[in-house]
Amino acid sequence: MPASTGPGSGARSPARPYGNPWLAGFLLGLVLLASFVIAGRGLGATAAYSALATAVAGLGGAARVAEHPVHARFWNDGAPLLSWTLFLLAGAAAGAFLSAWQGRRLAVVTERGPRVSARTRLLLAFAGGLLAAWGARLARGCTSGQALAGGAMLSVGGLVFMAAVFVAAYALAGRVRRQWL
């Protein structure tokens, strides 16, 4: 298999190849395990977006948000930004930056296949994010909270979620092929 090169591989400095996936998975598993044995919970991501959305909604009036059936879960007594998951993702942003910097893979680009315009790709990325958010809120978790953390804990719901994600994505892959290949 040829080494994958990131999209920063231009004339200036060649991007180093990504790490071995088995090793990366093993290390990710150790981080997940550390989260379980230290904090008593697994990794997550979607709750961070909800915390941000609740913080924004709170600007329009704290009382309504504190009473709101959905926002109340993320209101955290008026400090929605002091959220475990939001700090986790802030750390993740820094960790990803460090890894990409070390691997010379930092690059301001729009990732897309050769047959799609940057504008279309950005619109589809936004639409995909919107769909993923609704899916993750319905399932009470995403690839991190349900699939990774739930899977490691042998959670039935987490494993069913993961199966459903792959079923839908494989079923639709042919329809959006132009965007990627």
């Binding site: 639409a127 899916g135 319905l138 459903a164 079923v167």
Partner: peptide, 11 residues
């Protein structure tokens, strides 16, 4: 939720 999420992932 997983089906909707999977659609969001591939799109």
């Amino acid at each position: 939720g997983g089906l909707i999420f999977g659609a969001g992932f591939i799109v």
